[in-house]
Amino acid sequence: MSTEQSVAILGLGWLGEPLARTLLTQGWQVAGTTRDEEKAARLNDAGIVTLCWDFSAAMPARWPERLRAHTLVLCVPPGKVDDYPHTLGALARLAVAGGVQRVIFTSATSVYGGTGIKTEADAAPDGPRGERMLAAERAVQAYSAAQVLVLRLSGLVGGSREPGRFLSGKRFDGGDEPVNLVALEDLLRFIPALLARSDWPAVVNVSAPHHPARRDFYGEAARLQGLPPPEFGGGGEGKTIDGSGLCRWLNMDYSVTDWFQWLAARRG
């Protein structure tokens, strides 16, 4: 599988599996990985060439033949592997040596610390989670033989990720802080569109343009699910992730522009 319209997705999970299915319907040759043998069998039957691979195990000497592709998408969550930056860098190096020409890394907006509006130029972590993610970005970018695009994703919702359950019944500070979120349905629009482009920037934020207060959003999300709402203390300027650069580049808009409408539609 080495044509330009071929993609290998490492991590066929919450985002990776629906992305693989979407690309398959659009005529892409799709391969990927999972740690679950039963899931691998199911996805292989669906036409997605799937390899069982535990990234915490020793790396193979060569890139697996079944994952040969023009573009690699790294959808590996930090909690799934030890020494996340080292592992992601090693996977990128192995993939490029195996013929991969382009790499997309699904990073996170945890790389932004402090408060205020954050654009792609403002990465400055203020905690170990963000520091680890930024180190992973740099490890992937170090293999410049491939074209690399870092997608910094805001909080992920949609599909099986129901925000009404996230904070239900718990107490938090910072109820006035804005939420920064992106819905699965928008990711499944944007990623195929950017795969069709060759003029990749180095980094792009992905964050819907609506940023209600945490207490309002998560309170309504819990209410609509019939769950106990979270309790929030006041205050908290927080940070607002600017995801508009993606729209200007792709000439596309987010489909989710009002999170309360989105929540109500999910309930219905």
Results as ranks from 00 to 15, higher is better:
S2Q: 11
T3I: 11
T3M: 13
E4G: 11
Q5Y: 07
Q5C: 12
A8Y: 08
I9Y: 02
G11T: 02
W14T: 12
L15D: 05
L24T: 04
L24Y: 08
L24R: 15
T25A: 14
Q26L: 05
Q26V: 04
W28Y: 04
T34I: 13
R35M: 10
E38R: 13
K39R: 14
A40Q: 08
R42V: 10
L43V: 08
L43M: 04
N44L: 08
A46V: 06
T50S: 04
D54G: 05
D54R: 14
A57M: 12
A58Q: 12
A58N: 11
A61M: 15
W63H: 06
R66M: 14
L67E: 07
T71N: 03
V73L: 04
V73C: 02
L74T: 05
P78A: 13
P78D: 07
D82F: 12
D82C: 06
Y84A: 07
Y84S: 01
P85S: 10
H86F: 08
T87N: 10
L88F: 09
G89V: 02
A90V: 09
R93V: 13
G99A: 05
G99D: 14
R102P: 02
V103M: 02
I104A: 06
F105A: 08
F105G: 03
T106Q: 12
S107R: 05
A108Y: 15
Y112I: 11
G114K: 14
G114C: 05
T115G: 15
E120F: 15
E120Q: 09
A121E: 08
D126A: 13
P128V: 12
E131P: 12
R132E: 15
A135F: 02
A136E: 03
E137S: 00
Q141N: 15
A142I: 04
Y143H: 12
S144R: 06
Q147Y: 12
Q147D: 10
L151V: 14
R152S: 10
R152M: 00
S154N: 06
L156D: 09
L156Y: 11
G159F: 02
E162F: 14
P163S: 05
G164M: 00
G164N: 07
R165S: 11
F166W: 10
F166H: 10
L167Y: 13
G169Y: 09
G174L: 02
G175H: 07
P178N: 09
P178D: 15
N180W: 09
A183T: 05
D186L: 08
A193F: 13
L194T: 03
S198E: 12
D199H: 09
W200I: 01
P201V: 00
P209E: 14
P209Y: 00
H210N: 12
D216R: 06
D216V: 07
E220C: 13
A222Y: 01
Q225F: 13
L227Y: 01
P228W: 13
P230V: 04
P230H: 01
F232P: 08
G236K: 04
G238W: 02
G238L: 03
D242G: 06
G243W: 01
S244N: 09
G245H: 13
L250A: 03
T257E: 15
W259E: 04
Q261S: 14
L263W: 01
